[in-house]
């Protein structure tokens, strides 16, 4: 419900610069994922937006009202935010109910709101428990319910599912964002997991070294990364040299069409493919390839190939993965991304 904009944000701890000029624009009610490796500044950015720390330079505005700049500071308790940190940070001396009630004004009809959020987050019946009596997943649900209860305009989730095991994490994350979309709150999710970012967000902002390298839809970030760094941070990649001619390019895997986003390029380029674009066939209609190695992983198998003088590692369904030493060919599906070399 809050439109969030940031301009030229800078933040340093002592001599260490964490944010080096961050710009961000987030539409009201949308979901943004801040994706990046640890230490890239994504959590610091979230903390600045929350108001837990003052900004060194630049400004943050909610719906056009500046909430943080070097000369102005609105404390976090007035920003109408909901905040769910990594470990949940439930108040250990309060029951689930008391935790959720904490942010609700006294005298309001908190009983009704309490029941609403308990139901919304699937916690009905657990209100009397203490945090230490809950499982990890339940604790995170309580943390979410507590943040949701005062109906915040902006939800800030700081890797909230890190402590959970992988399966539970992905499912819970999608469920939580579904709930948040239902409430209409603008949401920012900090994560280092591309799957989590892609499956939940409208926009993914890829961060590195205190900069936002690219901010776009999940598909665009994945298929048309702004540079090689963004490509690596958002999934597996194959890089190879090539020669561009307008909207196509020539490389060891044949003549490939370029994405429009790459623009019209001439001369030497660095080509980026996602491994799943490379298709194996037993026939010969493509670039000749040979299987060097197979690594069985259960539901899939990683096949190491030699094709056109390039080493390639492809994930294939185990039942379709060719045997060791098989001769065949590969072909590239779809368009590819390239940058001037």
């Amino acid at each position: 419900m809050s439109q969030v904009t940031a301009h030229g944000l800078r933040k340093a701890y002592g001599a260490t610069e964490i944010l080096r000029g961050v710009d961000l624009r987030l539409a009201s009610g949308s979901v943004l994922a801040l994706l990046g490796p640890s230490g890239c500044g994504k959590t610091t950015l979230l903390r600045l937006i929350a108001g837990f720390e003052p900004v060194d330079a630049g400004s943050i505005a909610f719906d056009g009202t500046v909430v943080a700049s070097p000369s102005r500071f609105m404390p976090p308790e007035r920003r109408s935010i909901g905040y769910v940190p990594q470990e949940g940070a439930l108040f250990p001396h309060l029951t689930v109910e008391e935790n959720i009630r904490y942010g609700l004004a006294r005298g309001s009809d908190w009983r009704q709101r309490l029941q609403e959020v308990l139901a919304l987050t699937g916690l009905t019946g657990l209100g009397e428990r203490y945090p230490h009596e809950l499982s990890g997943g339940q604790q995170q649900r309580v943390a979410l319910a507590r943040a949701l209860a005062p109906k915040p305009s902006l939800m800030l989730l700081d890797e909230p599912f890190n402590a959970l095991d992988l399966d539970l994490r992905h499912n819970l994350c999608e469920e939580v964002v579904q709930i948040l979309r239902g409430t209409g709150a603008t949401t920012i999710l900090v994560t280092h997991d591309p799957v989590e970012a892609f499956s939940t967000a409208d926009q993914v902002a890829v961060m590195q070294n205190g900069h936002i390298r690219q901010c776009a839809s999940p598909e665009e970030v994945y298929w048309c990364p702004a540079d090689a760094t963004v490509a690596r941070l958002t999934g597996s990649t194959i890089f190879l040299p090539g020669e561009a001619r307008g909207t196509t390019l020539q490389c060891a895997l044949g003549s490939l069409p370029l994405h429009e986003k790459a623009g019209t390029l001439q001369a030497a380029v660095q080509v980026m493919l996602r491994p799943e674009q490379v298709c194996w066939s037993d026939g010969t209609d493509g670039v000749a390839a040979q299987v060097l190695h197979r690594s069985f992983r259960g539901d899939h198998t990683v096949v190491s190939l030699q094709a056109g003088g390039l080493p390639l590692r492809l994930r294939m369904p185990t039942l379709q993965a060719p045997a060791h030493d098989t001769q065949g060919s590969v072909r590239v599906q779809g368009r590819c991304m390239a940058w001037p070399a």
Partner: peptide, 27 residues
């Protein structure tokens, strides 16, 4: 006492001194 706990309490609309008495002190 994890520092995040105080941040969460602030985000829920409590002033620093209120946070101290309702969260830090009991713990």
């Amino acid at each position: 006492l994890p520092p995040q706990i105080e941040n969460v309490a602030r985000s829920l609309g409590k002033r620093p001194l209120q946070v101290f008495f309702s969260i830090v002190l009991p713990n």
